[in-house]
Design a protein around this nucleic acid. Structure first.
Length: 539
DNA sequence: AAAAAAG
């Protein structure tokens, strides 16, 4: 078993790692750290919960160890899609760099420029930023990126979703092409592939299979919801949510409730509070200080219910929550996986319950296609307790429909789903890992959506297609030069290097299916991964 | 149709 001490990390970094209690690197760390320390570009295909952050912070600190910061010229740069994620990286950096003299600045929106400017002026080794604020600083001429040696792009697929890719390209172009790039994405969408082909040079590719795709340890269920009338719909849906939470009882010790719209986040949080529940809202329209406070409160347990937009769907290192409640079906199917991935982490059990209203049915079908499993239908506690009123002719149609099992209409030929409407235990979510007799849907090309769903052979290490020494012989590539060699700059400016940077079809092995390393976490996920960073540090 | 991020 490989240990951190085998990885050639700076002794000061090792000491900090020991303080956190870690001994063995996670698969993404074991795969990414050695090539990163060699100075190679790294393409990491992994989602959060796999130890991804440390897989770039640890080598970064080690590589930066010797130099020193110069005013306005940071030597490394980490880009994250959301402010919270950037703050989380900064927290990690502080923990692992505590025995070094390295300095950092966190450049995120929603906070004052003044403090950030002062840090930049003084000179920092590491810049951790969201794209917007970084570009803002750059345009004010306060920031020079020509000395960046290492650039990290975290959660690139999320950046893509959020329309940040042009910004990322701009930032790439603001930094020297001689930089070392560590690039992380959960999936390899074509656009991501294009970026990596353009801005990465002969990267070491490290892929980690999804920890829990929609894990067997997550019990899932969906409640079909049809309003008795348009006017009542909103209220009824919130009532339904409260009923579902109450039905879970004490087992639901903390939960994240996801809504698609920020306005719903606010309204739902208010409704839960009114119902006497300890709930707070978090979404992008709230003031940053408020967001931070709320998240901290949820982490330390002083807030029990976090009502959230997708700002909290991915990446956030939140201690395993017992429940995820989807107030809406996410409109991007892959967000479902991210959302429910906030629970049931690393072998713990979790429960994910979703409400699907009539207009969300198409989204539900998309989600089921993506996870390649039907989500068991749960009884709607409201429709059983309160027989639908039939006042107007319009409502009458809806109401009668509400009474009969919706799945016969919505799910067509898919009859193999466990029937949860009949048993006494009907409200208990059913483990979707239970064998299903009939396939849900015909095979549909899921390639662009989620590479790792189809990741081959979890838990297997697939050998490099290209022998390592062959890669290293690849003329003029960075891999054969010492990580901090004296002639590094000259070598990097070679025409060959430049050519590689711009040749579009370089690197066939970038293509999906041609992964260098595919490492599964699967059931072997170490328990500490389920813990938040703070939890780990204190244990 | 909405969320995130720069105001």
């Amino acid at each position: 078993m490989i240990k951190f001490s085998d990885l050639n990390l700076d002794p000061k970094v090792l000491k900090a790692i020991i303080d956190t209690g870690y001994e063995t690197p996670t698969p993404i760390q074991a795969g990414a750290i050695p090539p990163a320390l060699e100075g190679r570009d790294v393409l990491g295909i992994a989602q959060t919960g796999t130890g991804k952050t440390a897989s770039f912070t640890l080598p970064m600190i080690t590589l930066l160890g010797r130099g020193r910061a110069r005013a306005r010229m940071p030597r490394s740069l980490v880009l994250a899609p959301t402010r919270e994620l950037a703050a989380q990286v900064a927290e990690n950096f502080d923990a692992y760099a505590k025995y070094t003299k390295l300095t950092k600045a966190l450049l995120i929106g929603g906070t004052s420029f003044k403090e950030q400017d002062q840090l930049i002026d003084k000179g920092v080794d590491v810049l951790i930023a969201t794209p917007g604020r970084l570009i803002d600083h750059f345009e004010r001429g306060k920031l020079i990126l020509s000395d960046v040696k290492i650039m990290v792009v975290d959660e690139a697929d999320r950046m893509l979703d959020m329309g940040f890719i042009p910004d990322i390209e701009r930032i790439f172009q603001m930094t020297p092409f001689t930089r070392q790039t560590l690039f992380f994405s959960a999936t390899m969408a074509p656009e991501i592939e294009r970026i990596t082909n353009t801005f990465l040079s002969n990267p070491a590719k490290v892929e980690v299979a999804r920890a829990a795709t929609t894990g067997e340890n997550i019990k899932q269920g969906v409640v079909m919801f049809e309003a008795s009338s348009k006017a009542r719909g909103e209220d009824e849906k919130r009532d339904l949510l409260i009923r579902l939470i109450d039905a879970e009882g004490d087992a639901c010790s903390n939960a994240i409730i996801f809504c698609n719209r920020k306005s719903d986040v606010d309204v739902v949080a208010k409704a839960l509070k009114k119902n006497g529940k300890n709930a707070e809202a978090i979404h992008g329209d709230l003031e940053q200080s408020h967001r931070t406070r709320t998240l901290d409160g949820f982490r330390d347990g002083s807030i029990r219910f976090l009502v959230a937009s997708d700002v909290a769907a991915r990446g956030l290192d939140i201690p395993a929550v017992t429940h995820v409640l989807n107030f809406d079906v996410p409109s991007h199917a892959e967000d479902y996986v991210h959302r429910i991935g906030r629970t049931g982490r690393a072998g713990r059990t979790g429960t994910a319950i979703m409400i699907c209203s009539t207009r969300d049915e198409k989204n539900l079908a998309d989600v089921e296609r993506l996870v390649q499993n039907p989500i068991p239908r749960l009884d709607n506690p409201l429709s059983r307790a309160t027989p639908p009123t039939t006042t107007s002719p319009v409502d009458d149609v809806d109401a009668s429909r509400e009474d009969r099992p919706r799945r016969s209409r919505t799910r067509g030929p898919r009859k193999a789903v466990p029937d949860v409407d009949t048993g006494a235990d009907a409200t208990a979510p059913v483990d979707v890992a239970a064998p299903v007799a009939e396939p849900v849907v015909a095979v549909i090309d899921m390639a662009p959506v989620m590479a790792e769903v189809a990741a081959p052979q979890p838990d297997a290490i697939v050998p490099d297609r290209q022998p390592r020494d062959a890669q290293q012989r690849d003329g003029g590539s960075r891999s054969d030069r010492p990580a901090r060699g004296p002639d590094r700059t000259a070598e990097r400016s070679s025409p060959e290097r430049r050519e590689r940077d711009t040749t579009p079809h370089r690197g066939r092995d970038h293509q999906r299916g041609g992964h260098d390393n595919v490492i599964g976490m699967g059931a072997d996920t170490p328990e500490f991964i389920a813990k938040s960073f703070a939890e780990r540090s204190t244990s």
